[in-house]
Structures are given as C-alpha cells and as structure tokens.
Amino acid sequence: MGLAALFLSGCASVLPLSGDYSRLNSRFSDTEPALSGNGRYLAMVTNRGGRQDLALYDIEQKRFLEIPRLNRRNALVESPSLSRSARYIAYVVSERGRPEIALYDRITQRRQMLTTGFRGPVRNPSISPDGRYVAFESGRHGQWDIEVFDRGASIQLDQVVGAPSDGADQEATPNAQ
C-alpha cells in the first residue's frame, strides 16, 4: 500500500490539455520556439492553459500534437529543444526546487532525467538532430560553461527514413568524433 503510494507520487498526475490550441499563437504569451531538425515541428512554451506548458506544433498540418505526460501538475517546464523529427524533446523541468534536464521520447511517451546527481545548476538544453547528444549550460565552475551529454551509441537515433541526405549525411557518422 505504502509502496503503491510511493509510485503514485512519483507518477505525476496527467493533465488534460486546457486552453485554446486551435492556432499557433494565443491571447497568452507563447515563447521559446524550437524547430525540429527537419523544420516540420515546433516546440514552444505557452501560457494559454493558465499555466506554463510545453506544446508541440505540426507546421505542415497546422495543428498541435499531444505529448502525453510531459506537462505535469507539480512541475514547471521550460527551454524545449527537438531532435530531427521531434521524436525526442529535451527540456528543463523543476519539480523539487532544482531545475533538471529531462528527455522525453514521443514514441515511448516516457521521460528520463539526464542531470540527476549532477553538481551545480543546469539550463538551456539543446539536443542534436539525431537525438544522441544534449548540449547544455552548466554552472558548476562558478560561471556558465557548455557541457555535452552523450546518451550513448545504443540509443535509437532519430533518423528520418527517406529524408534528403544533405545534412543527414553529417549525422550518419556520429561515432567518428
């Protein structure tokens, strides 16, 4: 019973999407735009629901897409960044007073914390188009530095099948570094 309660508190309550999501912009502030590598999707921070939420817009279909369980009742989210086809969303989430960098996978609809245990403040993540690397600002040396987090060779890369090869070529050999 206590165990179940523990799990429940860790699993944040799912938020119903409130606010007017019929158009790209709203009567409320819409900020921090981030394009996916392929230019089709746009992540942003919006206040249209009466709280600060992350939202994902499909520029081709001119509509918002659902990102289940990313926005949570007890969490403040900001600074989104998208991989090539918007499979991965890197962002900052503050839940227990400390901003952490999180990674949301739109296929599994799960999020993973990347900076748990990291010393010093972190902010402004930027994910590589293939989804393997996340650059972010770290304040652990008393000033802002850029650090790059490598999720490893075993992750599923965000590769668009049949995508034009220019640019994607650059991503084909990330291990070459």
Partner: peptide, 17 residues
C-alpha cells in the same frame, strides 16, 4: 567549446555546436 569565461546559449546542430 567552453572557456574560463562565460559560455552560453549553445545549440547542437549535429556536427557543429
């Protein structure tokens, strides 16, 4: 990539940051 001075606003383009 970083320096003893302030470095911020990084964007990861794949090969280039």
């Amino acid at each position: 990539l970083s320096s003893p001075h302030d470095d911020r606003d990084a964007h990861h383009g794949g090969r280039y940051i």
